[in-house]
């Protein structure tokens, strides 16, 4: 290795971000290379300079900012929202995992006529891919970036005719990532009752942040809109450890699960679409970072 190739290691050393192997390699090299030792000490000095140069903000900065902030309580503009998406930046293993937890969807699975009636009342919902059971079974969905788990699909699941992953359209590049379930898992087993919907786009940090709240706190938190039922909250908590290994989740665990894998490029659009269905959900796309593919997992935590 040439000296210049040690530059990132010297830099990483300053930040304490070298791996053990990198650090060992650097130390070996430093023993024999005077110029790299000199470089390191020069960079250490610059680093100290940089850190020393932190200045206090103007004394009136806080005041200037707070002057623009109205003292009266803001009316929470999203108080009526029932969905909270969480997409955080932590990364489990190689693929970014976005998880959508659905519970008690605001529609009733059942007769098609009921779905049609629901559709009329919920335009946002129907803007999603309308999955006709027959079409879905053939995998003949439209080529949108992502197929949302639609209520019609839930109906299909009850008949057992729709398998996992059949909603993915091969031609739209949806399978570019890993992690499609290998075996058909039972779809949402229960019927959906319109009560306490909660949508969570998840990865490790987001889920952890959520699980730090008690149900009371969640209920107090505006976006949840007092919809967290204690029994469901328990299911939610129980689901968290399982979901970390969602690809190994089994029917015996008692959760319905659907996985969609989308290429990274379409991930934000996919999650947006997924989230967008549920009327008031807000998704903050910039929170999603890195790799090549992501999986959007729908988990039913209804009992």
């Amino acid at each position: 290795m040439k000296c210049e190739e040690y530059l990132p290691l010297i830099s990483g050393h300053l930040d304490g971000e070298n791996s053990e192997i990198e650090e060992r390699r650097l130390q070996e090299h430093l023993k024999t290379c005077e110029s790299c030792r000199a470089l390191l000490s020069e960079m250490e000095r610059n680093e100290a300079l940089l850190k020393e140069s932190i200045v206090a903000p103007p004394a009136d900065l806080t005041e200037r900012i707070m002057r623009e902030v109205p003292k009266e309580k803001q009316t929470a503009s999203h108080r009526g929202k029932r969905w909270i998406p969480i997409a955080a930046s932590g990364l489990a293993a190689a693929a970014l995992l976005a998880l959508v937890v659905l519970t008690n969807l605001p529609f009733l699975g059942g007769a098609g006529s009921k779905d049609a009636a629901m559709a009329e009342n919920a335009p946002e919902y129907t803007s999603l891919t309308a999955v006709n059971p027959a079409e879905a079974a053939e995998g003949a969905l439209s080529s949108d970036a992502m197929k949302m788990y639609a209520p019609e699909a839930a109906v299909v699941s009850e008949t057992g005719s729709l398998q996992y992953g059949s909603g993915l359209d091969e031609s739209s590049g949806l399978n570019a990532g890993a992690l499609p379930p290998t075996e058909p898992l039972p779809r949402f087993a229960g019927r959906y009752v319109q009560t306490s919907p909660m949508l969570i786009v998840w990865n490790a940090d987001g889920m952890q942040a959520l699980s730090a709240f008690t149900p009371e706190e969640l209920n107090e938190y505006a976006p949840f809109s007092a919809n967290v039922v204690p029994s469901l909250y328990e299911r939610f908590q129980a689901a968290i450890p399982l979901l970390r290994d969602f690809d190994r989740i089994s029917p015996a665990d008692g959760f319905g699960i659907t996985v969609y894998t989308v290429p990274y490029e379409t991930m934000i659009a996919a999650i947006d679409e997924c989230v967008g269905v549920y009327e008031n959900a807000i998704y903050y796309p910039a929170a999603i970072t890195t790799p090549n593919a992501c999986s959007v997992v729908l988990v039913d935590i209804s009992e």
């Binding site: 902030v69 929470a76 969480i86 955080a88 930046s89 987001g206 807000i282 998704y283 903050y284 929170a287």
Partner: peptide, 15 residues
């Protein structure tokens, strides 16, 4: 001030 105005859409997606 941007933070203040957009706090409503902050859902702990990121730190």
């Amino acid at each position: 001030l941007k933070v203040w105005k957009s706090l409503a859409s902050f859902h702990f997606e990121a730190a």
